[in-house]
């Protein structure tokens, strides 16, 4: 009874720093579980579909002519799409292509900023855009802008490195 009264007075008066933390943490829980988790699940399903349907190979093929415009081999497109799905996966693809000699060290460095720009974007569409509540029509606009910026970064890196 006394504790309850004390708590009520304290809440009205001033919150303890621990209480502020817990209130904030509760917001974090809500964001993580009600918004981030369903979006991550969706992204993983999309990735699974792309992997199983060989959709990735088709997209990578499409990138080949674009990559040659920037003085890069077609394999650079595979690396970029690998990163687009997930950072870890992209790194694996990049290292594999390097070992096979399909990309050289110079290509990797030129590609590096672009890989971070579009890296894990398919997940981030859910983890950033959907969580923040971006208007549906802006999802594709933002994705296209990322790819444009990615290619600008490739041009810049080709000029510097």
């Amino acid at each position: 009874m006394t504790t309850a009264t004390n708590n009520a007075t304290r809440a009205a008066d001033k919150k303890l720093i621990t209480e502020i933390f817990v209130d904030g943490a509760r917001k974090g829980w809500n964001a993580a579980i009600t918004s981030m988790m369903p979006n991550v699940v969706m992204a993983f399903v999309i990735i699974r579909i792309l992997e199983m349907s060989h959709g990735l190979d088709i997209i990578s093929k499409g990138f080949e002519p674009v990559m040659s415009l920037f003085g890069l081999p077609g394999a650079a497109g595979i690396m970029l799409i690998g990163y687009w799905l997930s950072m870890g996966g992209g790194l694996g693809v990049a290292l594999a292509l390097l070992t096979k000699g399909q990309l050289n060290a110079h290509d990797l460095v030129v590609m590096a900023p672009a890989c971070y720009i579009v890296g894990s974007n398919i997940q981030y569409l859910g983890r950033i855009l959907s969580v923040i509540g971006t208007e549906g029509r802006y999802h594709s606009v933002m994705q296209v802008i990322n790819f444009i910026t990615g290619f600008v970064s490739i041009a810049i890196m080709q000029a510097i490195v």
């Binding site: 817990v22 904030g24 943490a25 974090g28 579980i33 988790m37 991550v40 993983f44 399903v45």
Partner: peptide, 25 residues
């Protein structure tokens, strides 16, 4: 797939919960 995505999201949750608590302070 979805199952792996669920566990992956669980691995991210503590960061968000902790950061939002600190952010509130």
């Amino acid at each position: 797939g979805a199952t792996d995505g669920f566990l992956f999201a669980l691995t991210l949750a503590p960061m968000v919960i902790f950061a939002m608590g600190v952010f509130a302070i």
